[in-house]
Write a protein that binds this DNA or RNA. Structure first.
Lengths: 188, 188
DNA sequence: CGGCCAGTATACCGAACGGTATAGCGCGGC
DNA sequence: GCCGCGCTATACCGTTCGGTATACTGGCCG
């Protein structure tokens, strides 16, 4: 493994455990067994390292929203496959998802927010378009695409957070339950 | 207003805008028009300032969970009054709620997490007991108290986050809609 | 009056912050 | 053989970090 990948891996590990601001460049390069100029050669700045980390390691998460774009009228199946994609990603990239969760409501005037703002906006738009399309079949949903996109993602993140703390398991059963809860509430 | 209150107010303002780690003691005391020893006289440390801020300004939020403790069999009404309490608090203490949201998924090994850990645990326990009690009437809920407590709070926070960014209004209509969505899903 | 004490300021501490100037290394191409 | 270049280290920059030693002030209590 080359130094670039080692740096990315160590930064991810440390930031997910203690936060972006709390872990400095010095500690990351020490943990990676290299020195600062090497890190600055590859990434240019601390912020550049964060951007690279997020850009390069969230591709699978972008793909998880593909079902939203190819909605075919079966809303439950579409939502289920999105939840399945997110849960799989969170399972296989737990440190990264932990960090993304911490950035979820980061202050607007912070590097963390700026690093994920575009990604999050794209996620929301994709889901809003899905609920917009679904509203044509289900008239009573109209006008609430934004709220549904946000609460759908919020539910996914809530369950992911539970799982990261050992209070849930992101398996197919939870995919079904979560989707069913979102569609029909907690009574059924 | 005495210096102690001024310090609390300025710390809240700055932290909610840019994050706890990103704003240092020096900037807070300058913004408050005093010097560091004054702040250290009242709060002992940066962390002590954070603890005091959270302890002293979240009393109304603790009260918002009172309906959970006096559950009388009407789950919808209980949840509605809890949501109403949270929404009112978020409306009237927007900067504080912004900060609490940023701390929601803070790394476990961070001052932010430690500052809100006890509060959040108490919140969850209170809600879990509520859903536990409700499960006696609604058998199909059994065993999911933890998940319901988490997703209920998650939905509240998601809507609060939307409102803080101008995408929603935390009024009685949204109280009704949010509760109804949690109970019966997005279809009705 | 005298003493105490809460509150505040000046000036400072060592450590860590993000970032860089400079120089050397090894390796592929000419 | 040597030039260029990608990569890496030593050593350093100015600034800010959280925190403090010391001293002064004003007001209250005896």
């Amino acid at each position: 493994m080359d130094n670039r990948e080692i740096i990315l891996g160590r930064a991810l590990e440390l930031w997910s455990q203690r936060g972006y601001d709390a872990v400095g460049v010095q500690e990351i390069v020490e943990s990676a067994g290299i020195t600062k100029p090497t890190m600055y050669h590859y990434f240019g700045s601390k912020r550049g390292l964060l951007d690279a980390l997020i850009d390069e390691r969230t591709e699978d998460l972008r793909n998880a929203l593909a079902p939203a774009a190819s909605y075919n009228g079966d809303l439950v199946a579409t939502l289920e496959s999105i939840v399945r994609g997110y849960f799989a990603f969170a399972r296989e990239n737990s440190a990264l998802y932990r960090m993304l969760l911490a950035f979820w409501f980061a202050p607007a005037d912070s590097d963390e927010y700026r690093a994920v703002a575009a990604r999050n906006a794209a996620q929301h738009e994709s889901l809003e378009r899905l609920f917009e399309a679904a509203a044509k079949q289900h008239g009573n949903m109209r006008g609430r695409q934004k709220a549904y996109a946000a609460t759908f993602l919020g539910m996914i993140n809530t369950y992911a957070g539970l799982a990261l703390n050992g209070h849930a398991t992101l398996d197919d059963q939870l995919v079904y339950r979560a989707t069913h809860q979102f569609m029909h509430g907690i009574f059924s």
